[in-house]
Design a protein around this nucleic acid. Structure first.
Lengths: 122, 122
DNA sequence: ACAGGTGGTTAGATAAGACTAACTTCAAAA
DNA sequence: TTTTGAAGTTAGTCTTATCTAACCACCTGT
Protein backbone atom coordinates (compact mmCIF):
# COMPACT_ATOMS: atom_id res chain seq x y z
CA UNK A 1 0.00 0.00 0.00
CA UNK A 2 1.18 3.50 -0.84
CA UNK A 3 1.02 6.38 1.59
CA UNK A 4 -1.23 9.07 0.19
CA UNK A 5 -1.75 12.50 1.73
CA UNK A 6 -4.88 11.23 3.37
CA UNK A 7 -3.18 8.19 4.85
CA UNK A 8 -0.32 10.32 6.10
CA UNK A 9 -2.87 12.48 7.83
CA UNK A 10 -4.26 9.51 9.65
CA UNK A 11 -0.83 8.46 10.80
CA UNK A 12 -0.01 11.90 12.12
CA UNK A 13 -3.32 12.03 13.92
CA UNK A 14 -2.87 8.66 15.55
CA UNK A 15 0.60 9.72 16.60
CA UNK A 16 -0.63 12.95 18.12
CA UNK A 17 -3.52 11.27 19.92
CA UNK A 18 -1.70 8.30 21.38
CA UNK A 19 0.20 9.09 24.49
CA UNK A 20 3.32 6.98 24.29
CA UNK A 21 1.52 4.72 21.80
CA UNK A 22 -1.03 3.55 24.37
CA UNK A 23 -3.60 3.00 21.62
CA UNK A 24 -6.29 5.19 20.11
CA UNK A 25 -9.97 4.67 19.49
CA UNK A 26 -11.32 4.96 15.98
CA UNK A 27 -13.91 7.34 17.36
CA UNK A 28 -11.18 9.65 18.66
CA UNK A 29 -9.53 9.79 15.27
CA UNK A 30 -12.86 10.48 13.60
CA UNK A 31 -13.60 13.31 16.00
CA UNK A 32 -10.17 14.88 15.65
CA UNK A 33 -10.32 14.81 11.86
CA UNK A 34 -14.04 15.63 11.78
CA UNK A 35 -14.85 12.71 9.53
CA UNK A 36 -17.06 9.68 9.91
CA UNK A 37 -16.11 6.62 11.93
CA UNK A 38 -16.77 4.54 8.83
CA UNK A 39 -14.15 6.40 6.81
CA UNK A 40 -11.61 6.00 9.56
CA UNK A 41 -12.42 2.32 9.87
CA UNK A 42 -11.85 1.76 6.16
CA UNK A 43 -8.61 3.73 6.21
CA UNK A 44 -7.36 1.74 9.19
CA UNK A 45 -7.73 -1.48 7.22
CA UNK A 46 -5.51 -0.09 4.50
CA UNK A 47 -2.94 1.14 7.01
CA UNK A 48 -2.98 -2.27 8.65
CA UNK A 49 -2.41 -3.88 5.24
CA UNK A 50 0.61 -1.67 4.79
CA UNK A 51 1.85 -2.51 8.27
CA UNK A 52 1.68 1.01 9.57
CA UNK A 53 -0.72 0.17 12.39
CA UNK A 54 -2.10 -2.86 14.17
CA UNK A 55 -5.21 -3.43 16.21
CA UNK A 56 -4.73 -4.45 19.80
CA UNK A 57 -6.70 -4.98 22.97
CA UNK A 58 -10.21 -3.55 22.86
CA UNK A 59 -9.75 -2.85 19.14
CA UNK A 60 -7.46 0.03 19.89
CA UNK A 61 -5.26 1.34 17.10
CA UNK A 62 -1.50 1.21 17.64
CA UNK A 63 1.30 2.42 15.40
CA UNK A 64 3.88 -0.14 14.34
CA UNK A 65 7.57 0.85 14.35
CA UNK A 66 7.20 1.66 10.67
CA UNK A 67 4.06 3.71 11.25
CA UNK A 68 5.60 5.53 14.15
CA UNK A 69 8.67 6.45 12.16
CA UNK A 70 6.51 7.82 9.37
CA UNK A 71 4.33 9.74 11.76
CA UNK A 72 7.30 11.22 13.55
CA UNK A 73 8.89 12.22 10.30
CA UNK A 74 5.71 13.95 9.17
CA UNK A 75 5.31 15.70 12.47
CA UNK A 76 8.85 16.97 12.23
CA UNK A 77 8.24 18.20 8.72
CA UNK A 78 5.14 19.97 9.88
CA UNK A 79 6.99 21.68 12.67
CA UNK A 80 9.88 22.68 10.47
CA UNK A 81 7.52 24.29 7.99
CA UNK A 82 5.35 25.95 10.56
CA UNK A 83 8.33 27.43 12.39
CA UNK A 84 9.80 28.64 9.16
CA UNK A 85 6.57 30.33 8.13
CA UNK A 86 6.16 31.95 11.51
CA UNK A 87 9.72 33.06 12.20
CA UNK A 88 10.99 33.88 8.76
CA UNK A 89 7.84 34.90 6.91
CA UNK A 90 6.06 36.21 10.02
CA UNK A 91 2.89 34.32 9.25
CA UNK A 92 0.24 34.04 11.94
CA UNK A 93 0.47 30.67 13.73
CA UNK A 94 -3.04 29.64 12.70
CA UNK A 95 -2.41 30.20 9.02
CA UNK A 96 1.10 28.84 9.26
CA UNK A 97 -0.37 25.64 10.67
CA UNK A 98 -2.85 25.37 7.80
CA UNK A 99 -0.18 25.93 5.20
CA UNK A 100 2.25 23.58 6.88
CA UNK A 101 -0.40 20.92 7.09
CA UNK A 102 -0.71 20.68 3.31
CA UNK A 103 2.90 21.46 2.51
CA UNK A 104 4.29 18.71 4.72
CA UNK A 105 2.99 16.08 2.30
CA UNK A 106 4.43 17.54 -0.85
CA UNK A 107 7.55 19.57 -0.20
CA UNK A 108 10.97 18.26 -1.28
CA UNK A 109 13.62 17.36 1.25
CA UNK A 110 15.82 20.04 -0.29
CA UNK A 111 13.32 22.76 0.51
CA UNK A 112 12.68 21.28 3.91
CA UNK A 113 16.37 21.31 4.81
CA UNK A 114 16.74 24.85 3.57
CA UNK A 115 13.81 25.96 5.70
CA UNK A 116 15.26 24.27 8.73
CA UNK A 117 18.71 25.77 8.42
CA UNK A 118 17.40 29.24 7.69
CA UNK A 119 15.13 29.07 10.72
CA UNK A 120 17.94 27.85 12.94
CA UNK A 121 20.51 30.42 11.88
CA UNK A 122 17.92 33.11 12.47
CA UNK B 1 -18.10 23.86 -10.78
CA UNK B 2 -15.29 24.23 -8.30
CA UNK B 3 -11.69 24.64 -9.29
CA UNK B 4 -9.71 21.71 -7.96
CA UNK B 5 -5.95 21.36 -8.13
CA UNK B 6 -6.34 19.24 -11.23
CA UNK B 7 -8.57 21.78 -12.95
CA UNK B 8 -6.22 24.57 -12.07
CA UNK B 9 -3.46 22.59 -13.69
CA UNK B 10 -5.40 22.37 -16.89
CA UNK B 11 -6.03 26.10 -16.90
CA UNK B 12 -2.37 26.88 -16.37
CA UNK B 13 -1.41 24.50 -19.12
CA UNK B 14 -3.85 25.97 -21.60
CA UNK B 15 -2.59 29.40 -20.72
CA UNK B 16 1.03 28.42 -21.24
CA UNK B 17 0.30 26.65 -24.52
CA UNK B 18 -1.88 29.25 -26.15
CA UNK B 19 0.02 32.03 -27.72
CA UNK B 20 -2.09 35.11 -27.15
CA UNK B 21 -5.09 32.82 -26.64
CA UNK B 22 -5.07 31.58 -30.22
CA UNK B 23 -6.59 28.27 -29.15
CA UNK B 24 -5.10 24.96 -28.10
CA UNK B 25 -5.71 21.40 -29.21
CA UNK B 26 -6.79 18.82 -26.68
CA UNK B 27 -3.98 16.65 -27.94
CA UNK B 28 -1.44 19.34 -27.09
CA UNK B 29 -2.72 19.57 -23.55
CA UNK B 30 -2.65 15.81 -23.22
CA UNK B 31 0.93 15.66 -24.42
CA UNK B 32 2.11 18.48 -22.20
CA UNK B 33 0.52 16.95 -19.12
CA UNK B 34 1.38 13.40 -20.17
CA UNK B 35 -2.17 12.30 -19.70
CA UNK B 36 -4.70 10.67 -22.04
CA UNK B 37 -6.74 12.69 -24.52
CA UNK B 38 -9.86 11.19 -22.99
CA UNK B 39 -9.06 12.61 -19.56
CA UNK B 40 -8.40 16.03 -21.03
CA UNK B 41 -11.62 15.87 -23.00
CA UNK B 42 -13.66 15.10 -19.90
CA UNK B 43 -11.94 17.84 -17.94
CA UNK B 44 -12.61 20.36 -20.71
CA UNK B 45 -16.32 19.69 -20.41
CA UNK B 46 -16.21 20.55 -16.75
CA UNK B 47 -14.16 23.69 -17.37
CA UNK B 48 -16.62 24.70 -20.06
CA UNK B 49 -19.48 24.16 -17.60
CA UNK B 50 -17.75 26.49 -15.20
CA UNK B 51 -17.17 29.03 -17.92
CA UNK B 52 -13.43 28.90 -17.74
CA UNK B 53 -12.99 27.86 -21.36
CA UNK B 54 -14.97 27.63 -24.56
CA UNK B 55 -14.57 25.61 -27.72
CA UNK B 56 -14.07 27.51 -30.94
CA UNK B 57 -13.22 26.93 -34.56
CA UNK B 58 -11.84 23.46 -35.28
CA UNK B 59 -12.70 22.44 -31.71
CA UNK B 60 -9.84 24.46 -30.35
CA UNK B 61 -9.86 25.28 -26.65
CA UNK B 62 -9.90 28.96 -25.66
CA UNK B 63 -9.76 30.55 -22.24
CA UNK B 64 -12.62 32.86 -21.31
CA UNK B 65 -11.83 36.10 -19.48
CA UNK B 66 -12.57 34.30 -16.25
CA UNK B 67 -10.35 31.37 -17.18
CA UNK B 68 -7.56 33.63 -18.29
CA UNK B 69 -7.61 35.59 -15.06
CA UNK B 70 -7.43 32.39 -13.07
CA UNK B 71 -4.62 31.03 -15.19
CA UNK B 72 -2.65 34.24 -14.94
CA UNK B 73 -3.10 34.35 -11.19
CA UNK B 74 -1.88 30.77 -10.86
CA UNK B 75 1.08 31.42 -13.09
CA UNK B 76 2.02 34.41 -10.99
CA UNK B 77 1.74 32.36 -7.83
CA UNK B 78 3.94 29.72 -9.37
CA UNK B 79 6.56 32.25 -10.28
CA UNK B 80 6.47 33.91 -6.91
CA UNK B 81 7.02 30.61 -5.17
CA UNK B 82 9.67 29.37 -7.55
CA UNK B 83 11.65 32.60 -7.30
CA UNK B 84 11.40 32.55 -3.57
CA UNK B 85 12.64 28.98 -3.36
CA UNK B 86 15.51 29.69 -5.71
CA UNK B 87 16.67 33.06 -4.45
CA UNK B 88 16.00 32.80 -0.73
CA UNK B 89 16.29 29.09 -0.09
CA UNK B 90 18.82 28.46 -2.88
CA UNK B 91 16.88 25.51 -4.24
CA UNK B 92 17.79 24.15 -7.65
CA UNK B 93 15.44 25.48 -10.33
CA UNK B 94 14.20 22.02 -11.29
CA UNK B 95 13.19 21.11 -7.76
CA UNK B 96 11.94 24.61 -7.06
CA UNK B 97 9.62 24.22 -10.05
CA UNK B 98 8.31 20.90 -8.77
CA UNK B 99 7.67 22.26 -5.32
CA UNK B 100 6.11 25.46 -6.63
CA UNK B 101 3.86 23.45 -8.88
CA UNK B 102 2.14 21.78 -5.96
CA UNK B 103 2.39 24.67 -3.54
CA UNK B 104 0.72 27.16 -5.87
CA UNK B 105 -2.60 25.39 -5.39
CA UNK B 106 -2.58 25.30 -1.62
CA UNK B 107 -0.58 28.13 -0.13
CA UNK B 108 -2.33 31.01 1.64
CA UNK B 109 -2.22 34.54 0.26
CA UNK B 110 -0.47 35.60 3.45
CA UNK B 111 2.43 33.27 2.81
CA UNK B 112 2.47 34.17 -0.84
CA UNK B 113 2.71 37.89 -0.08
CA UNK B 114 5.43 37.29 2.45
CA UNK B 115 7.41 35.27 -0.08
CA UNK B 116 7.04 37.98 -2.66
CA UNK B 117 8.17 40.82 -0.45
CA UNK B 118 11.09 38.88 0.96
CA UNK B 119 12.24 37.99 -2.52
CA UNK B 120 11.91 41.56 -3.70
CA UNK B 121 13.74 43.15 -0.80
CA UNK B 122 16.52 40.65 -1.31
C1' DA C 1 -29.48 -11.25 33.31
C1' DC C 2 -30.55 -8.07 30.17
C1' DA C 3 -31.27 -3.39 28.07
C1' DG C 4 -28.89 0.34 26.38
C1' DG C 5 -25.47 2.85 24.81
C1' DT C 6 -20.94 3.32 22.92
C1' DG C 7 -17.72 1.84 19.72
C1' DG C 8 -16.74 -0.58 15.55
C1' DT C 9 -17.95 -2.61 11.10
C1' DT C 10 -20.18 -3.45 6.67
C1' DA C 11 -22.67 -2.37 2.63
C1' DG C 12 -23.77 0.63 -0.74
C1' DA C 13 -23.60 5.42 -2.80
C1' DT C 14 -21.22 9.42 -4.58
C1' DA C 15 -17.58 12.23 -6.63
C1' DA C 16 -13.20 13.25 -8.81
C1' DG C 17 -9.68 11.93 -11.65
C1' DA C 18 -7.41 8.93 -14.25
C1' DC C 19 -7.29 4.91 -17.69
C1' DT C 20 -8.23 1.91 -22.24
C1' DA C 21 -10.80 0.68 -26.15
C1' DA C 22 -13.76 1.71 -29.50
C1' DC C 23 -16.06 4.98 -31.98
C1' DT C 24 -16.92 9.47 -34.71
C1' DT C 25 -15.60 13.54 -37.18
C1' DC C 26 -13.20 16.09 -40.25
C1' DA C 27 -9.92 18.06 -43.28
C1' DA C 28 -6.36 17.36 -46.49
C1' DA C 29 -4.06 14.52 -49.91
C1' DA C 30 -4.56 11.50 -53.77
C1' DT D 1 -14.60 13.01 -54.65
C1' DT D 2 -13.13 9.58 -51.93
C1' DT D 3 -10.18 7.89 -48.50
C1' DT D 4 -7.56 7.93 -44.55
C1' DG D 5 -5.22 9.30 -40.53
C1' DA D 6 -5.27 12.58 -36.85
C1' DA D 7 -8.16 14.75 -33.48
C1' DG D 8 -11.80 14.34 -30.51
C1' DT D 9 -15.45 11.85 -28.03
C1' DT D 10 -17.93 8.27 -25.49
C1' DA D 11 -18.52 4.26 -22.74
C1' DG D 12 -17.07 1.67 -19.27
C1' DT D 13 -13.54 0.55 -15.59
C1' DC D 14 -10.50 1.56 -11.58
C1' DT D 15 -8.90 3.87 -7.41
C1' DT D 16 -9.20 6.89 -3.56
C1' DA D 17 -11.75 9.08 -0.27
C1' DT D 18 -15.56 10.34 1.54
C1' DC D 19 -20.57 9.70 3.12
C1' DT D 20 -25.06 7.51 5.42
C1' DA D 21 -27.60 3.85 7.20
C1' DA D 22 -27.90 -0.29 9.19
C1' DC D 23 -25.95 -3.53 11.76
C1' DC D 24 -22.96 -6.15 15.34
C1' DA D 25 -20.43 -6.55 19.80
C1' DC D 26 -19.39 -5.59 24.08
C1' DC D 27 -19.49 -3.41 28.65
C1' DT D 28 -22.12 -1.45 32.29
C1' DG D 29 -25.65 -0.25 35.40
C1' DT D 30 -29.99 -1.49 37.07
Amino acid sequence: MNLTTSKEHYLKTIYSLSDDNQGVHITEIAEKLEISKASVCTAMKALQEGNYIYRGKKRLVYLTKKGEMQARSLTEKFETIQCFLMRILHIDSEIAAQDACVMEHVVSTETLHAMLSLTNQH
